[in-house]
Nucleic acid binder design. Structure first.
Lengths: 219, 219
DNA sequence: GTGTATATCTCGGGG
DNA sequence: CCCCGAGGTATACAC
């Protein structure tokens, strides 16, 4: 990784045009060739960048980065403050826990957390516009489609409505009830869900995980 | 800005849990206090980060960053390879051209690009859930609501459907036709738009800009 | 502050 | 390869 601190101007031409007037900034060039120009603030997003794969040419004037789509990033160097290269090596990568996939696993194992007597029919039940997270049957044998989100927002309700439209057309399933399950559901999503006849269930991730490990302990 | 290159382990606890095993990485600490941990590849997104505002405490063991929401980032330092601080100063900021706002300007000036005989009534026509990008009348005097996107996706169709629901309630407007205008429209968005009776128009940004500059040249 | 819409989104998965 | 969905999305802006 090369860390170049310099007074520079930057111009990007591609999906849009973007220009940075002269200032001192950090130019980070990674081993895979990707380039990012950072100011001393503004979260982790760079002011300007070019992802790999690209071709980088350097001259006294500065850097020109071009990618296969014909986008260009021109970095005009006016004064180099610091320029060093460090060896980082391969990164073993990030391990995440607590994303939607885990919530889906837990709810597939414990569908009754979504309603008494609910039983799983299948996960990722396919429709022609994408898979429904969980398809269940309730105690009366009626079909229940479940959309799972970490955070329940309007988009999640609309997604479930689209699935329900499709599922209702299946004579083996109809009528189909809809359930939006999330760790937190926003008030506006609740309002829209109510209008569309969809039930909302807030799920306690830690409690579910606790149930899962309790059961493991029994065996 | 402080650029710390070190063998480290990183643990984030907050909206999810994320862990990085030991490796050499760049820890970037900006003047506003935000922290980003970068590997030597993978575009501009850091492996782990903590945005400002936060509190940063440092010891021999490493860094602990905490934000007001109670999220924590632990960076355990095992071996410091390099550690330097550079002065960057205030950044004059980025100037952009070619985003959705510009497409809206161009289409407001040339509504007939969306359909023969279309005329603009107003931009950003207000409804109680937000403004419609363009409200037009067609050659027969019927109302047309236009939603403009750089890329037409399902969310854009849903957005337009919500606006149409509201506009239809206005006796001076109803019936209202919907048009989704974008530089590119994805297949799934087309399918949903067709079901909802919404027209799709792909717009050539460069051609529109050419028309605009042609007209300037006439005067 | 919440809510809404955008983004050169990035990133990963599936066909 | 493209399409699609998720994200600790981040960011700007209106209310």
């Amino acid at each position: 990784m090369r860390l170049l601190v310099a007074r520079c101007r930057v111009d990007y031409e591609g999906r849009l045009s973007a220009h940075l007037p002269s200032a001192v900034r950090l130019v980070m060039i990674k081993a895979d060739g990707c380039v990012a120009v950072h100011a001393d603030g503004g979260a982790y997003k760079p002011l300007n960048w070019m992802n790999a794969p690209n071709t980088l040419t350097e001259s006294d004037a500065g850097l020109v980065v071009t990618n296969p789509q014909g986008e260009t990033l021109h970095i005009t160097l006016e004064e180099v403050v610091d320029d060093r290269t460090v060896e980082l090596g391969e990164d073993p990568g990030l391990h995440k826990d607590g994303v939607e996939a885990h919530l889906q696993e837990l709810l597939a194992a414990h569908p009754d957390a979504l309603g008494d007597g609910l039983e799983l029919v299948r996960r990722e039940h396919p429709t022609d516009i994408g898979p429904v997270d969980l398809l269940c049957r309730d105690a009366e044998g009626a079909a229940v489609a479940v959309e799972i989100k970490r955070r329940g927002e309007i988009a999640g309700v609309e997604q479930l409505v689209r699935y329900l439209e499709r599922l209702e057309r299946d004579p083996l399933l109809t009528p189909v009830r809809g359930v939006l399950a999330a760790q937190r559901i926003k008030p506006q999503a609740r309002v829209l869900a109510a209008e569309r006849g969809i039930d909302c269930v807030e799920v306690d991730y830690d409690a579910l995980r606790g149930r899962a490990s309790d059961e493991l302990r029994l065996f």
